[in-house]
Design a protein around this nucleic acid. Structure first.
Length: 797
RNA sequence: GCGGCUGUGGCGAAAUUGGCAGACGCGCUAGACUUAGAAUCUAGUGGGAGACCGUGGGGGUUCAAGUCCCUCCAGCCGCACCA
């Protein structure tokens, strides 16, 4: 059969198949399928301002390829898509356009969805979710209430990061170099009453859980560092002439004999207790001065300042009297907010002691031979520490010091609690009511959702905009029915995204158990098998989602502890000049014109082929042409088919190895090599005399996940059976018989230099090969022969 | 300052366990077809006239190093007084 169908109108073909898929429910997900499930997910987009940009496409198109591949491999693939609609991006965009964020979100979501369909994404839209709709955020509020009931959501007056431009508090994770993650303006410190999630309760298990994850090492390391475990000891110093004590945290208990002063953080409440009256004014002035400093000021000026309190403490090891200082280099929210100053063995303490003329006392010899102590050795036998790891040694030393009842082993984490309330409008209302009689009262689950009212004055002023809406604020207390006021702060968007992956499978199918998902479905579908998104979320979304999952697991709501078994970060597409694309630089490229001109498959193929997916790189139009050329060559081959079965052994070999390699590549997100293999296969068919239908069909099947629309069209021309989607076909299986050649080429080396390439039979013995190589080595008998079967033979003369 | 990643032709990039560096493509060169160009097809394409030399520089281990070790340089990312 000769098919003349050239040249095709690619954009037309796209529309045809998108309609076909929709009409025939090709993308519909069957929850009751008996096939093994494969849940794959890209981080969902926030439908702010503009259209989907190239970066979105680089995230979605290759992942769609992966999902389609898995489907053809026989999995019941669940690959839903939704919208992260609440939050600052959407609200800020609304503020700049004057359109209400709710209306804006609806418009943008429609735009996004249309674009996603144009892309040809295999999404089961019946499972979509949008975080700003009450049917979703009821669940977010439910989650808050469970955290509250378990004591993991709490309110606290504390110094927080406040973005003066966004007019809201932001979390530690959202402060980048002292600037707001969203708007890059300077973050100031403010004392405010705030809601926190007690993520620190999970620090240890969040850290330990990292080991078992199939995640990029880079990301794992970042989370490990962010959680920041330190093994050390808490040591109690008695305050002179007082019943008070100061507890310090140290990782260097072995240096305790050298502790010649104590430093308290300015915010440390102990400050008041150790102050002598003569010093009070100076101290007050100092504390006021340091409290004003922003993080940026602190970063710029590293010089340590401090003030003497007038008080003294007793070093529990040496019994000596040591002065107590207040200084800005000690953090209140790490460890105990107090440190022992050991100037001889700590750079920072040394700098401070030098400046304030405090005694510097060396207690550990610097040579490693005899790493323990002089003075310390009089108390305990130091030899026994030598065989221990440093962490074990610290623990052991601490135990030994317990003899003097002053030290106990302790683990401290860098991680701090998640500050999650925001003074902004566009977020989930916190389901809490303040009652004059009953105090803080959680809204009962039966009264959820606490709906976010549609208000017009949503501009941020620093105070929550919801506070101006009296209808919202004034309510009755769920417990005593008396007058009460609602909490007017809203939740950080990261709360919405910390459980959305749990929600997808149950969308529109929530069970009656009071939990916002169906337990059976969740147990069947989760965890997520493959999660894909940007690396910038390493210590934000990815950490929060792990925390929430572990919380839900701990209290029996779900039966797994980790949400994302396997994680991939896509690289970033840069502008052709190698710069980051940005509107302000005017170097952005929109995908729309390419889709209009070529259809999305060409764009997809280029994205797959032109970059390493993990690395990304600069955009380059020229490669697009090469993709068109490739697709046209495939089309031509179809019209040149001259036989049914493949008879060319060389093609058979390439065919089998291509199938094997493409399978491996699509599984491991190595899309560029997958395309390259298909090109090689095409070249092999092209070179062969006869073009067999069998081979061409395999080629089309291999390409289907990568260029779904065009592959459907080609497949329609080639198939013999009744009309069904190519995505109901099986991915080809390599024919073992052809996978290995009987003759192979091996390299002949003399003294490790390549002399010749020989074609010999496979699995030849060393003697057989040596016999063939006589001419290269002459009469000399080699000192040594290295033979790697089927690869090389090396004669050392 | 600490921690991590990356460095391969003119360009985008490949390279299971150390085993033929540069797959695949772009670009370029020559030829075919064309009045001509575009498109397409065919051949070639790391450098060097050559023995040889080539994966940021220098050193090492090894029969053999892009790959392992040490060191230096450059770029990117994360943390940043975390006691």
């Amino acid at each position: 059969m000769n098919v003349i169908y050239f040249p095709m109108n690619y954009p037309e073909i796209h529309k045809k198949w998108q309609k076909y898929w929709q009409k025939n429910n090709v993308n519909k997900f069957d929850m009751n399928s008996s096939k093994p499930k494969y849940y794959t997910l890209e981080m969902f987009p926030y439908p702010s301002g503009a259209n989907l940009h190239l970066g979105h496409f680089f995230n979605f198109a290759p992942c769609d390829t992966h999902a389609r591949f898995k489907r053809m491999m026989g999995y019941n693939v669940f690959h839903p898509m939704g919208f992260d609609a609440f939050g600052l991006p959407a609200e800020n965009h609304a503020l700049s356009t004057g359109t209400h964020p709710h209306d804006n979100t609806i418009i943008n979501m429609e735009k996004f969805r249309k674009q996603l369909d144009e892309l040809g994404g295999m999404y089961p839209w019946e499972y979509t979710l949008t975080t700003c709709f009450p049917e979703y955020y009821t669940g977010t509020q439910w989650l808050f209430l469970q955290l509250f009931r378990h004591g993991l959501a709490y309110q606290k007056e504390s110094t927080v990061n406040f973005c003066d431009k966004c007019k809201t508090v932001i979390a530690n994770e959202q402060v980048i170099d002292g600037e707001c993650e969203r708007c890059s303006s300077e973050v100031i410190r403010r004392d405010m009453k705030q809601w926190f999630f007690k993520i620190t309760d999970f620090a240890g298990e969040l850290l330990d859980g990292i080991d078992g994850l199939d995640w990029p090492n880079k990301t794992k390391t970042m989370q490990q560092n962010w959680i920041g475990r330190s093994c050390g000891a808490n040591v109690i110093f008695n305050v002179e002439n007082s019943k008070d004590t100061i507890e310090v945290f140290t990782t260097r208990i072995d240096t305790i004999f050298g502790a010649t002063f104590i430093v308290l953080a300015p915010e440390n409440c102990l400050v008041k207790r150790v102050t002598t009256s003569e010093q009070e004014k100076a101290i007050d002035a100092y504390i006021k001065k340091t409290a004003k400093k922003s993080d940026i000021e602190r970063m710029e000026n590293h010089e340590k300042t401090g003030v003497f309190t007038g008080g003294y403490a007793i070093n529990p090891a040496s019994g000596k009297r040591v002065p107590i200082y207040i200084a800005d280099y000690v953090l209140n929210n790490y460890g105990t907010g107090a440190v022992m100053g050991v100037p001889a063995h700590d750079e920072r303490d040394h700098e401070f002691a030098t400046k304030y003329k405090i005694e510097i006392k060396q207690v550990i010899k610097t040579d490693k031979e005899d790493a323990c102590v002089t003075e310390f050795g009089t108390l305990i036998n130091s030899d026994k520490y030598n065989d221990l790891s440093s962490e074990q040694a610290i623990i052991q030393i601490t135990k030994d010091l317990e003899k003097i009842k002053s030290a106990k082993h302790s683990i401290t984490y860098r991680l701090r609690d998640w500050s999650m309330s925001r003074q902004r409008y566009w977020g989930v209302p916190i389901p809490i009511v303040y009652c004059e009689c009953c105090g803080i009262v959680p809204v009962p689950e039966s009264q959820l959702p606490v709906k976010l009212p549609y208000i017009n004055d949503f501009k941020p002023h620093g105070a929550p905009p919801l506070a101006n809406d009296e209808n919202f604020v004034n309510t009755t207390c769920p417990s005593c029915n008396g007058p009460a006021k609602r909490e007017t702060e809203t939740m950080d968007t990261f709360v919405c995204s910390s459980w959305y992956f749990l929600s997808y499978p149950s969308v529109g199918n929530v069970g009656m158990t009071g939990i916002p998902w169906d337990k059976k479905i969740t147990e069947k579908m989760l965890p997520v098998d493959k999660y894909i998104g940007g690396a910038e979320h390493a210590c934000m979304h990815l950490l929060y989602a792990r925390f929430i999952t572990r919380f839900l697991h701990k209290y029996g709501y779900i039966n797994f502890a980790e949400p994302f078994k396997s994680l991939v970060h896509q690289g970033m597409i840069l502008a052709p000049d190698g710069q980051k694309m940005s509107k302000s630089k005017g170097n952005t490229i929109t995908p729309d014109k390419y889709i209009e001109q070529y259809g999305s498959d060409v764009l997809r193929m280029y994205m797959l082929f032109g970059f390493n997916y993990i690395d990304g790189g600069p955009w380059n139009d020229a490669t697009l042409k090469s993709i068109t050329r490739f697709i046209e060559r495939v089309e031509k081959i179809i019209s040149q088919i001259s036989c049914e079965t493949e008879t060319d052994d060389e093609v058979q070999y390439v065919r089998a190895s291509t199938i094997k390699n493409v399978k491996h590549d699509l599984d491991s997100f190595s899309f560029n090599t997958a395309v390259a293999r298909c090109m090689e296969f095409l070249n092999a068919i092209h070179t062969s005399k006869n073009k067999s239908r069998e081979s061409v069909i395999d080629l089309i099947l291999l390409l289907a996940p990568m260029m779904p629309h065009i592959a459907e069209e080609f497949f329609e021309l080639l198939r013999e059976h009744n009309k069904t989607s190519i995505f109901d076909e099986k991915f080809p299986i390599p024919n073992q018989k052809f996978l290995e050649r009987s003759d192979i080429e091996i390299v002949v080396q003399v003294n490790s230099k390549i002399k010749e390439r020989l074609t010999i039979k496979k699995d030849a013995t060393q003697d057989e090969v040596v016999a063939l190589c006589k001419s290269f080595i002459g009469d000399t008998s080699p000192k040594k022969i290295i033979y790697v079967p089927n690869k090389l033979i090396n004669f050392i003369l």
